[in-house]
């Protein structure tokens, strides 16, 4: 079941990420989609807060992959924005890193063929100056997870 949420600001988007973190377990894969400025990094910052990570989350666009280990579960934050091919993505060995972490892949739909079928896809759409639509789309075994908790 797809869950639709509205965000009126960056801090709203962050709060949605924080709420989602309560559903996340080690080994989970979250695919994050949205244009530049949609609030992807704020969303991941919220997930990090919720996982008890005390480091400041910044965009991994330049370094491709960042790992935060100060929380309850390690968070691996990947951005494939600068990646040119599936082979380059697989070279990052994200799979190995993700086995014991929560893996969030920005622009992950571009490398969907190299990601597990069991993942949660999140689409952040710009609907106004600060308004965003945040859509949570479960795939694979995520369809059996209690996503409806997110809309309460």
């Amino acid at each position: 079941m797809t869950v639709d949420l509205n965000s009126g600001s960056d801090s709203d988007t962050r709060a949605i990420g924080r709420r989602l973190s309560g559903l996340l377990r080690a080994g989970d894969v979250v695919v994050l989609c949205g244009t530049l400025g949609a609030g992807k990094t704020a969303f991941v910052g919220g997930i990090a807060d919720g996982l008890g990570i005390d480091e400041y989350v910044t965009s991994p666009s330049f370094v491709l992959m960042k790992k935060y280990t100060s929380g309850f579960i390690p968070l691996v934050h990947v951005d494939v924005y600068r990646v040119g091919s599936l082979g380059e993505f697989e070279d990052l060995d994200v799979y190995e890193e993700s086995l014991s972490s929560v893996l969030v892949v920005e622009w992950g739909d571009a490398v969907a063929a190299s990601l597990p079928g069991d993942h949660l896809k999140i689409l952040i759409e710009i609907t106004g100056e600060t308004d965003r639509r945040v859509q949570l789309v479960p795939n694979g075994n995520w369809t059996k997870r209690p996503l409806e908790e997110m809309s309460e």
Partner: peptide
């Protein structure tokens, strides 16, 4: 020797207006 499928370029135009990131 990964033995994986032949490498596939990402069709970035499908995912964002500006297309692939220029190296």
């Amino acid at each position: 020797l990964y033995l994986r499928e032949p490498d596939v370029s990402i069709a970035w135009k499908q995912f964002r207006q500006e297309g692939p990131w220029e190296n």
